[in-house]
Nucleic acid binder design. Sequence first.
DNA 1: TAATACTGCGAACATCGATCGCAGTATTAG
DNA 2: CTAATACTGCGATCGATGTTCGCAGTATTA
Lengths: 238, 238
Amino acid sequence: MADRETRPTTVWSRPERGARGPAPERSRYEITAAALALADAEGLAAVSMRAVAQRLGTGPASLYRYVGSREELLDLMADAVAGELDLSAAPSGDWLGDLVGLALQSKAAHTRHPWLPELNDRRGEVLGPHAIDYLDHALAVLAPAPGTSRQKLEAIGLLGGLATLFARREAMAAAGEDSGAGDPPAQAAHLAAVAAEGRHPHLLAALTAAGPPPVAGPAERDALFERLLRRLLPSMLG
Amino acid sequence: MADRETRPTTVWSRPERGARGPAPERSRYEITAAALALADAEGLAAVSMRAVAQRLGTGPASLYRYVGSREELLDLMADAVAGELDLSAAPSGDWLGDLVGLALQSKAAHTRHPWLPELNDRRGEVLGPHAIDYLDHALAVLAPAPGTSRQKLEAIGLLGGLATLFARREAMAAAGEDSGAGDPPAQAAHLAAVAAEGRHPHLLAALTAAGPPPVAGPAERDALFERLLRRLLPSMLG
DNA sequence: TAATACTGCGAACATCGATCGCAGTATTAG
DNA sequence: CTAATACTGCGATCGATGTTCGCAGTATTA
């Protein structure tokens, strides 16, 4: 009559191992690390249960003793990245500066793990322990700031989104011509060809005037990001 | 000796149909429309070649006469949404106002098609004809604005990213409690439980103080978005 | 009229996430 | 000490997915 275990919902609400049988030969951590390495090396699509299993020298079915599904593994990966952030610095009182520091760290994490946006786009994202630590830390930083709790939570959420956005744009700029394009040689050539047809005069002008290489160093990029945040955040917490 | 057709690269660089055989029974447009309807109704994951084919009353293999791969179909979908934007209004001279108008349209499109971010997160996104029209239009709007062509292209790109970001946040807020969570009941309960353990005092305080429902209407949301843009864009084109 | 280049599409393949069930092992109960 | 229990590892397998092959039929070209 017990209705079939409706759902423990998240990885973290289920115990890592039972208390009865033999000791597990692997751990969630080990599996998550393998998945992270795979994603960093070959992209998120390369993180298949089979590939992760092979990397650990076992069969795909074995992984399901540790994670309930691939989705759960992705949740673990996201939380592992959240755990990479350094929250050890105590709030300094300069909440804006502290928050900007968090944002820069977050942006750096996205640069380290370009597959993060793809991960976060899944609906119903789950907050793991590290993400919760981050949230609490950010709220601690914001304690001396004005604004309601709801405003602060929204500001923190927006902060993460902006870090993602800027990291993505910087990655694109680094990979060649910008303007929303992807592959520099092919895409730029295609754009130029289309523009040359005459129906897009402004595009043509912009492309021919593009002239000098990007030259914007990472420090400049961070500066733009920081300026935006310093302007935006106070206006959200009035 | 011809090296195996390296790659026509995009859907649009390949002719829609050959000149020899029987007339195709369907068209790229028809297929794209079916895919769009499916995505709107059941999400992007529901857009499988089989599902699209079934919706058109044919077999999966037939679709490959129109698109080279599922990826190309996704490109077509993205460009179809770009085609939903109304670019008929000529630049008014108030470039900031015109640009904000474009951004609001873009945000609305993301609200209409919640699967758009998932689409755009694929690397190497390809600009179709509608996207190119949009780009040229935005550049036309920016003609009287200060700044280099590169700055303008970057501003336009950032604009799109911000529209995506805000649309996502609004969708989350509409779907229940915010704070970066997904499923309101389960996730909020889980958060509260964790916070109650005592190690996250600021989170606990924020959650218990959350009090009144969101109440922010869509007009207010648009206003926040617009304020941000009006402040940010001029500083990017100095 | 013959050659050609296309169209529609059933059948099939590789790969994916996930489940089942069995053999083996550690814990617990009596 | 023994039996019952609840776990672990994992080969075999399932259903779904994107994609390809090859054939029968059709319109265009020579």
